[in-house]
Amino acid sequence: MLKILFFLSSGLFLGWSLGANDAANIFGTAVATKMLKFYTAAIICSIFIVFGAVVSGAGASHTIGQLGSINQLGGAFIVALAAAVTVLWMTKAGLPVSTSQAIVGAIIGWNFYSKTPTSISVLSKIVGTWVFSPILAAIFAIILFYFVKKIIDSSKIHLLRLDSYTRIGLIIVGAFGAYSLGANNIGNVMGVFISSSPFKDISFAGIIRLSSVQQLFLLGSIAIGVGVFLYSKRVMMTVGSGIFKLSPVTALIVVLASSLSLFIFASQSLHDFLVFLRLPPIPLVPVSSSQAVVGAVMGISLAKGGRNINFKKLGQISIGWIATPVASALLAYIALFFMQNVFMQNVIN
């Protein structure tokens, strides 16, 4: 059991860092502008991340599984660790890093090491989604911006009442954002452990059944929750008052737009519905919440007439699409070699 926990620890660490960084994308402005107390935000965020991960985490995780089926716990440990270290490095370098890109790179590293062919069609589907998700978030943000502006302008709502509605909106949209984050990103944290999951299905009084995968997701999402509670406050203050200075209403739009983007790439029901309508289904892929937020902020800048567009930030995102997976793949490859040959642990079956 201790050995299992040790091997899972890298995934939990990745979860912790995801919680520390990405909760700020959802509640950063609300907390930094004092619209919500940090603990209110942290509680809502953690509960809904767990909820999203356990209920709706399977779809995006499945795509990660298709990219590389890591069949040894030792291998999964190294892959998650390589991704976590890459995220940590890139965060220190001040880049809008994506856990999704780090884990995909690390899986490709494992594929190279284990001489497993990487499915180009799955990889292109994933990379295409990375590019598309900030664009989609920007489109959502533009539509929402005009919609909200029209409502505010025509309703003649009092500043104070708008403030109280915005607070309620930030809580509801934040909960939805946390749910979407959990559903979309749990695959990054725990996806690599699915094939080698040590858990058995359990049932509570025959009412609640938790599959082995759901137990993994529960554990991973709790780690994300711990990250939210212990470390996200500082990041929230930076996001909320540093890089993007948003008003509470625009923050609401940004969070909703980016959450919708995350939700679309995680919702199995939406996927099935589109298939039912004989429309092309949206791929279920873990995407970067930070980049979706940047996309949404850019969308608002465009809607306001294209001023203040941060081209440097756009450039950093594009670099991240390549640099993050490459760095993570290299790190995974080297670490797998050491794990196998120095620590004598099996990393492939």
Binding site: H158, L160, R161, D163, S164, R167, I168
Partner: peptide
């Protein structure tokens, strides 16, 4: 919570008016 916010907001709206 929303009700508390709203009644307080309404009261304050009245005071500002």
């Amino acid at each position: 919570m929303p009700n508390i916010f709203n009644s307080r907001s309404k009261q304050l709206e009245g005071e500002i008016e």
